[in-house]
Amino acid sequence: MSLESVKAHFEQWNRQDDIMEFETSSATVQEAADTIGVIPARIAKTLSFRGEGDQAILVVAAGDAKIDNKKFRHLFNFKARMLSPDEVLEQTGHEIGGVCPFGLANDLKVYVDISLKRFDTVFPACGSTNSAIELTCDELYEYSSATTWVDVCKGWEEEKPEPVLSSEKGL
């Protein structure tokens, strides 16, 4: 049912036929990357958190990014607490492994993390454990009706080279 709600969601942009369905699982970042043939970082994973009140919030981030609790708390003014699998299904209408910001069961706030901006295109799930769609970051933002871009992740930044001292250069 969830894949069907995502297909219906994409009809408004005539993109429902762009959803890829696979014979193999794409439920984890690594499985999705292996199935699609891209690096794990290009998988746009959707994380579900307890929001204020009884509404969840969703953060879409790069596959290699992890939530930075300090940044999250500073931005949202509450602690990052992920939903249980039952709560995820109830709030989003999607089961773990297929959670995406499209075709949601409830009107949830969606935030897109800047960890995705380093890629021309990314691959979010489409409501099932064996589906995805290739989107630009602008399309992901638009199609998910995102509230704003956020910076709440860590672990994805490009490694900055250590400065080289002149004595190490043989000078």
Rank of each mutant, 00 (worst) to 15 (best):
S131H: 03
T92A: 03
C126Y: 10
D120T: 12
N69G: 13
G98N: 05
L89Q: 13
L171G: 11
I43F: 05
L108V: 09
G155H: 01
F10V: 07
A44L: 14
E23L: 06
K160H: 07
K109A: 14
K79I: 10
R15P: 11
R50L: 12
E52P: 00
N130C: 01
V150N: 13
K70C: 06
R15C: 15
P124W: 12
S167M: 12
K79W: 10
D54P: 01
A80V: 14
E162G: 05
D54I: 11
F76E: 01
E90T: 11
R42Y: 05
P124N: 14
D68M: 09
M1L: 02
A105D: 04
P161A: 08
G53R: 12
S84F: 13
T136S: 15
S115W: 11
L165N: 08
T136E: 07
Q30W: 06
A32N: 03
Q16G: 00
L116I: 06
E142A: 14
N77S: 15
F22E: 00
T46M: 09
D18V: 03
C126H: 10
D120K: 10
A33T: 00
K109Y: 11
T35W: 00
K7T: 06
E162C: 07
R118G: 03
N130S: 03
D64N: 12
T28A: 00
R73Y: 14
E157G: 07
V112H: 02
C153G: 08
C100F: 11
A41M: 04
D18L: 09
S2P: 05
S115V: 10
G97V: 01
N130D: 05
G155S: 02
G103V: 06
D68Y: 10
E142K: 12
N69C: 09
V99F: 12
K79F: 10
K66V: 03
A132Y: 08
P40A: 00
G53K: 14
T35R: 02
S131P: 01
E142C: 07
A125L: 03
P40N: 00
F119E: 04
P163A: 02
I57W: 10
V38S: 00
R73D: 13
E4N: 07
K71E: 00
L75I: 12
V99E: 09
E162K: 13
I43H: 04
N106S: 11
E23S: 07
N130I: 01
V122F: 14
I57L: 14
Y141K: 10
V6D: 06
Y143H: 14
D120G: 07
D68H: 12
L140Q: 09
R50H: 13
T24I: 13
K169N: 08
D18C: 09
E87V: 04
V60C: 11
T129W: 03
G103C: 09
V59P: 01
G103A: 10
N106E: 13
D34W: 00
V60W: 09
G155Y: 03
D34V: 00
V59Q: 08
A56S: 12
L58E: 03
